[in-house]
Simulated assay, not measured.
Amino acid sequence: MNKIETAPQLCSYFSITLTLRESGSSVRGRAPISKVGNRKLRKLLFLCYFNASKHNKTYRAVFARIANKGKST
């Protein structure tokens, strides 16, 4: 395994970087995450996020605050 030296490299490894689509005038909406990195780690992160948003009171409050601001969750 190669050394991971920067935060962008770590995000790429976990496959949580955004994919920018800049093609003409049809560029609207949120940028999807890249599917290039480690699929199993991405699924594990999602499961941790999902469980924390449902069962952890502290995280649930943060999640609700972000959602109320209209941010993507």
Rank of each mutant, 00 (worst) to 15 (best):
G37L: 08
R65C: 03
C48T: 00
F46C: 11
A7N: 10
R39A: 11
E5S: 10
M1Q: 15
S26A: 12
H55Y: 10
M1T: 14
F46N: 14
L20W: 11
L10T: 07
Y59L: 09
S72N: 15
E22W: 04
I4A: 02
R42D: 02
P32V: 12
L20V: 12
R21V: 14
P8N: 15
A7Y: 03
A64T: 14
G70E: 15
S72R: 15
G24E: 07
G29Y: 09
N68F: 06
N68W: 09
T6P: 00
G70Y: 12
S72M: 13
T17V: 09
Y59W: 08
N68Q: 13
V36W: 04
G70V: 13
V62T: 12
I33D: 02
T58H: 09
E5F: 00
V36E: 12
T6L: 08
Y13E: 07
C48D: 04
V62I: 10
S26L: 14
G37A: 09
E22Y: 03
A31R: 13
S26K: 15
G29M: 05
P8K: 14
I66N: 01
S15P: 05
M1E: 15
S12I: 09
S12L: 12
L45M: 06
A64G: 05
K54R: 12
L45H: 00
I33Y: 03
K43E: 15
G37Q: 03
F50A: 05
A64M: 07
R65I: 03
F46M: 14
S23M: 14
L47N: 02
Q9M: 08
F46G: 10
K57G: 06
K3W: 13
G37T: 11
L20T: 13
S23T: 14
R39Q: 14
P8L: 10
L47H: 03
S12K: 11
L10P: 03
Y13F: 10
V27R: 14
R30S: 10
L47V: 04
I66P: 00
Y49R: 00
T17G: 04
